[in-house]
């Protein structure tokens, strides 16, 4: 019941934490999609198999590094570059990095796995490589890329909670403060809100994924 009281009296603050959280996700994942899809297209090119392997491996290692450790490693790096090492910027950078693997890998795999017969047909009809990429490969890859984006966003909602340790604002704030001051109402409020947020966004993106699937590919 304390939780209820807490939410009741702090809904404006909770709302602003939620907005901060979403803003962080929106900014970082926009960059992540842009970078991940471009890089994914690049490494899926002919004769880049070795580059692709290395890039994907690096992105895979990236994912295994605990977020708290990555934040810690980013701080001195950013201050060495005279950039703010606390707050929004390091959080966005870390989230972009964590968002890479799912988007990059899915883009790469989806493009590589387009049925060769289709590419052959496209080439045989006189499509340029660019037209084959834009009219065949990418449209066919969209649902898979969307699934990667959804995965990335869900992961990042979780990591954005932890970004509160390096001074980013979001729904991690009440959890962190609650843990330090043993305020159960704050902990539960933060945990419940961020969980519901993650589930909601996941559900919405699942719908978007369906919507973005070209009609002929739906089962």
């Amino acid at each position: 019941m304390e939780v209820w009281q807490y939410i009741n009296s702090h809904w404006v603050t909770i709302g602003s934490w939620t907005m901060d959280h979403l803003w962080l996700i929106l900014v970082s994942n926009s960059f992540a999609v842009f970078i991940g899809v471009s890089l994914g297209i690049f490494i899926s090119g002919k004769g880049r198999e070795e580059v692709a392997d290395t890039v994907l491996y690096l992105a895979g290692i990236m994912m295994t590094i605990p977020s708290l450790a990555l934040f810690g490693l980013l701080m001195p790096l950013l201050s060495a570059l005279n950039l703010p090492s606390l707050g929004f910027l390091p959080a966005v950078i870390a989230l972009i990095l964590y968002g890479q693997l799912p988007i990059l890998r899915n883009t790469y795999t989806a493009i590589r796995e387009v049925d060769p017969a289709m590419i052959e047909a496209g080439r045989g009809m006189g499509m340029t490589s660019r037209q084959i990429l834009l009219k065949i490969k990418l449209p066919l890859a969209v649902p898979v890329i969307m699934a990667g984006l959804r995965n990335a966003v869900v992961i990042n909602i979780g990591i954005a909670t932890i970004a509160v340790f390096i001074g980013a604002r979001g729904l991690g704030v009440p959890i962190f403060r609650g843990l330090r001051t043993s305020r159960t109402d704050m902990i539960i409020t933060g945990a419940v809100f961020v969980s519901v947020l993650a589930l909601l966004v996941d559900g919405l993106l699942a719908l978007a994924e369906r919507k973005f699937t070209p009609e002929g590919l739906k089962k």
């Binding site: 289709m118 052959e120 047909a121 006189g126 499509m127 066919l140």
Partner: peptide
Amino acid sequence: NELRREMGYAIQEIGLFPH
């Protein structure tokens, strides 16, 4: 590409674009 557009091309796997 111009050359190919002047020739119809049909293959065993058909390669219809599913989207």
